[in-house]
């Protein structure tokens, strides 16, 4: 029997034991999910996005199920940066995996948070540029705006810096290049897809926030496309994010050009899927093309 291949990698300057990354907003800050999964078997964890000011989140209902998908309208509910820095950040180092802190805000807020987090616990920062449930300054959409914002954050921190890009089908290459030019070390591609769901009986939107973001298996082919296009544009390492819930999806993400594989919505419905995924990644590394057994 052959030795289990080593799945370890360096991603944007962070040492990961394997390519699996628990995605922001689906794994808290590690405290809750560590009761459910073996955190030491993941490559990294991205914390729930924190903003400078606390945010109460959107009115309920915040969740609507769609065919093989989930539309959420959480609205970046979080206790604000001061509490994150004081209560959450110090404990991040004691978790058995590198933790990437996800932050969102305007330029000055992002810079202040990035500076304060440097050396305070996280192994890296992810700038959430694309939450579909908040608007305005939180969501730059033009490559020039994104580049300016990321340059500002880059100046504020020496931590590995990831940009979580919006799922902009037509400009994903431009956005990836903007992040690279601004000095980012890696990308998360992408985020939930803007979406709506209606309650036909009540003839109104099912979400309290009216619109939301679609995630889950339904979005996987779209994520693969976005990763592929971003990969063509830049050499930065990519966390392929969106819809991976089994071995086939995870391997597809690598084939599309991602170095790391994000696990998000699957944590809600099949939290132990990482076990079969890790096994499949090991087989993928061992076997050449055409030799991997299809998953039943």
């Amino acid at each position: 029997m052959s030795k289990t291949p080593d799945l370890a990698l360096r991603f944007a300057g962070i040492k990961l034991r394997n390519p699996l990354v628990l995605l922001s907003g689906t794994a808290g800050a590690g405290r809750e999910i560590k009761k459910l999964v073996e955190l030491g078997r993941f490559g990294a964890l991205c914390t729930k996005t924190v903003t400078f000011q606390p945010r109460p989140g959107n009115p309920p209902p915040r969740i609507a199920e769609t065919p093989s998908g989930l539309v959420n309208s959480i609205g970046l509910e979080n206790p604000g940066f001061a509490r994150f820095l004081e209560e959450t950040a110090p404990g991040l180092r004691s978790l058995p995996l590198p933790v990437i802190a996800s932050i969102a805000g305007n330029g000055p807020e992002l810079s202040r948070m990035a500076e304060a987090l440097t050396g305070a616990g996280p192994a890296g920062l992810e700038i959430n540029l694309s939450c579909p449930n908040v608007g305005g300054a939180f969501n730059p959409t033009a490559p020039t705006e994104i580049e300016r914002l990321l340059r500002e954050v880059r100046r504020a921190t020496g931590l590995p810096l990831l940009a979580k890009l919006p799922p902009d089908f037509y400009r994903i290459g431009d956005l990836a290049r903007a992040a690279e030019t601004a000095g980012c070390d890696g990308l998360t591609v992408a985020n939930t897809l803007p979406a709506m769901v209606f309650d036909l009986k009540l003839r109104k939107p099912r979400l309290g926030g009216i619109t939301g973001g679609l995630s889950g298996p339904a979005v996987l082919p779209v994520s693969l496309y976005l990763v592929h296009r971003a990969r063509q544009a830049v050499g930065l390492p990519i966390i392929g994010s969106g819809g991976v819930h089994d071995a086939d999806g995870a391997v597809s993400m690598l084939l599309a050009g991602a170095q790391a594989i994000g696990l998000g919505t699957v944590n809600f419905f099949r939290p132990l899927a990482y076990r079969e995924i890790l096994q499949a990644l090991a087989e993928f590394r061992t076997a050449g093309p055409g030799r991997r057994k299809p998953t039943p």
């Binding site: 689906t26 808290g28 809750e32 459910l36 109460p56 309920p60 419905f269």
Partner: peptide, 27 residues
Amino acid sequence: ETVMACGSGLCRGCAVPTRAGYRMACT
């Protein structure tokens, strides 16, 4: 009873309006 996704506090989806702001039905 609310609509719920994870059931374990991870998704913040099952918000219940309380007199002290939103609380999670699951946790």
